[in-house]
């Protein structure tokens, strides 16, 4: 790791102000990706502004079917929230399969979404659940948030503080994990709210997380695993690497979609 200077913020405003003074600073959430990247000397921020001690960014509240999750909530807390499980178990299940138990104690939903790793799990949930991304500056609709690999609508001094969404009637996430890294090679989050169906795919797309319009239409007209079986997933839009060709990933997207729909019931 290159040299860096560490700062701890106790409020969002303080964090923004600390970053403003830094030459090339970065916000640090759980650090499960950022510290790992810095260790590999693939990132070299001059300053790190730690958000982990900002209490206002933590916690889950459920009001009826309205859900609000603080961006600083760790994966373990999302996975084990009884309140959340009562209205949206799919999101708990997703969180319970990110990384490993130790990573889940540190990694946060905000950090994961802000980083927008193409193989991360949470971006699919943000899109499929049509979450509102709440920052220190504004509210961003899910469909406007992700801008390709590791790119988002966030400005440099913008911090995600929370996510909000209405729990759908049905939802599920099915993930095919890379046999080595255990990141998603194809992760599909499906959600149904009346006639509104959203299908978001992570891990597979060459441009990061995306919604699959063909599957959404098919499922909107007929909510069943069979409905997605006939839908074409274009291999040309898929990543290809040692672990899976684009053809294999395209196939997996379909299989995971089927399994997610079946699991959602």
């Amino acid at each position: 790791m290159y040299e860096t200077t560490y700062h701890r913020a106790s409020s969002v405003d303080e964090a923004v102000s600390l970053l403003g003074k830094a030459e090339d600073g970065k916000f640090l959430a759980g650090g499960m990706t950022l510290i790992a990247t810095m260790k590999q000397r693939l990132a070299a921020p001059s300053d790190l502004v730690d958000l982990r001690h900002i209490d206002a960014m933590k916690g889950i509240s459920v009001n009826g079917r309205s859900v609000r999750i603080g961006a600083g909530t760790c994966h373990y807390d999302v996975a084990s929230s009884a309140e959340l499980r009562a209205v949206c178990p799919a999101l708990c299940d997703l969180a319970s399969h990110i990384g490993d138990p130790h990573v889940r104690h540190m990694g946060t939903i905000g950090g994961s979404v802000a980083n927008n790793d193409p193989a991360a799990d949470y971006p699919s949930a943000v899109l499929a659940l049509n979450m509102t991304v709440i920052t220190n500056k504004r509210e961003i609709a899910a469909d406007d948030f992700f801008k390709g690999l590791f790119e988002t609508a966030l400005e440099e001094d913008e911090i995600i503080t929370a996510f909000s969404f209405e729990a759908p009637e049905k939802a599920a996430y099915a993930k095919f994990a890379n046999p080595a890294s255990r990141y998603a090679m194809a992760g599909v989050f499906v959600a149904k709210n009346g006639g509104d169906v959203r299908v978001a795919v992570t891990g597979a797309g060459s441009d990061g997380v995306f919604r699959h319009a063909g599957m959404e239409q098919a499922l909107a007209s007929h909510w069943s695993a069979d409905a997605v079986a006939g839908i074409h997933v274009d291999a040309e839009d898929m990543l290809s690497d040692l672990h899976g060709t684009s053809e294999y990933r395209a196939h997996l997207v379909k299989v995971m979609a089927k399994r997610a729909v079946a699991a959602a019931g």
Partner: peptide, 10 residues
């Protein structure tokens, strides 16, 4: 936690 991915300062 994995102590190799946390700064001592954190």
């Amino acid at each position: 936690v994995k102590s190799c991915t946390i700064l001592a300062a954190q």
